[in-house]
């Protein structure tokens, strides 16, 4: 018990995250010694000259660092989305990808690019947010909100909305084959961090950080929501209102992440589930541990995606799905539960 608590404490996880990011920056088609990486990071941040070759500096600072940072922020955001969504609908299978919310966001994002509103500030992200909100509303209506939502209805509603939205996304990508800035179908359906640049990082990082702070202030509410809406009301929490606020914020988060790096599935399922086995259901411990673990998980997944094949980048969604799908099956057909030990 003590070792478990220590293993999933924030100080240890933040060290692991720093190491993962360092590893991810130094490994790749060209391997760079960790010492050079640290030297470049230091010189860039402190604005001092560095002894490292300028071409190498460019690879590190303009390509690998933003990519690793985006991976960490996206992983943290996806894990956060999974934890909050699971508490909000009281179902351990809830996750933006499985519920079709990420696919809804991709329809919005591709539509924005097709219509040319992508050049407006927040154009793509704004449309992705709208798409995510609509998909969320559709799934919750289909699954029957209000009462505790049954797993079967939730998964089926998510699958239906997801299939519809992915078809729409592919259709838009197909007819807009050469629209400026339109990513490939693979980008929207399987995700990629390959286009990470410093200037595209600000918005996702700002949103992820703000929502992490907000939800860390809501850990009691999340705990109480797990006990059911009625009990939450008797403890002074307006459960229906909180749930609405949470779902809108999650749609915003999902929209931004999808607009930035496409759909990356299963992270919101795998990470909270694995972390709960160590921390239990209490969000005061679960939430920070899941956020760190999500960041570590996606940083390492991206490293795998970049290095697994000599030919080049795999879509990162393939890696996360290969890890996530078996767990999804286990949760669906095995004992479902919010605990590590289930029932």
């Amino acid at each position: 018990m003590q070792i478990r608590t220590l293993l999933f404490s924030s100080p240890l996880l933040s060290i692991l995250l720093a190491l993962s990011i360092l590893l991810s920056i130094s490994l790749g088609s060209i391997s760079i010694p960790a010492g050079d990486v640290l030297s470049v990071l230091f010189s860039q941040i402190a604005d001092t000259p560095s002894s490292v070759d300028p071409a190498m500096t460019d690879i590190i600072w303009s390509l690998r660092v933003p990519r690793a940072v985006l991976a960490a922020a996206t992983g943290a955001g996806l894990a956060l989305a999974g934890v909050v969504m699971q508490a909000s609908v009281q179902n351990p299978l809830a996750e933006p990808f499985l519920l079709g919310i990420a696919s809804g966001a991709s329809v919005g994002a591709t539509l924005a690019i097709l219509l040319g509103t992508g050049s407006l500030p927040f154009g793509v992200s704004g449309f992705a947010f709208l798409g995510a909100v609509l998909a969320t509303a559709a799934v919750l209506l289909l699954a029957g909100s209000g009462r505790r939502i049954s797993t079967v209805k939730l998964v089926l509603a998510g699958a239906a909305i997801s299939a519809l939205c992915i078809a729409l996304t592919n259709f838009i990508v197909y007819i807009a084959a050469d629209a400026e800035g339109m990513q490939s179908a693979a980008f929207w359906t399987m995700g990629s961090l390959a286009d990470a640049k410093w200037r595209s990082l600000a918005l996702p990082i700002a949103i992820v950080t703000a929502l992490i702070v907000y939800f860390l202030s809501q850990t009691r509410t999340l705990d109480v929501l797990l006990l059911g809406e009625e009990l939450a009301v008797t403890l002074g929490i307006d459960a229906a209102r909180k749930r609405r606020i949470f779902m809108v914020l999650l749609a915003l988060l999902t929209g931004i992440l999808v607009a930035t790096c496409g759909i990356i599935g299963f992270v919101g399922l795998v990470v909270p589930h694995a972390v709960r086995a160590f921390t239990g259901a209490s969000h005061r411990r679960l939430l920070p541990a899941a956020i760190f673990s999500g960041a570590i998980f996606l940083t390492l997944s991206d490293l795998l995606a970049r290095t697994l094949l000599p030919a080049g980048d795999l879509p990162i969604g393939i890696i996360t799905a290969l890890i996530g799908a078996p767990l999804f099956l286990k949760l669906l057909f095995g004992g479902k539960g919010f605990g590590g030990n289930g029932k």
Binding site: L227, G228, S282, K336, G337, N341, G342, K343
Partner: peptide
């Protein structure tokens, strides 16, 4: 109340 499979400890529930 309905029982969800939540892995809270007895003390955590009381503290709620």
């Amino acid at each position: 109340f309905h029982t969800v499979d939540f892995d809270f400890s007895v003390l955590e529930i009381a503290l709620m």
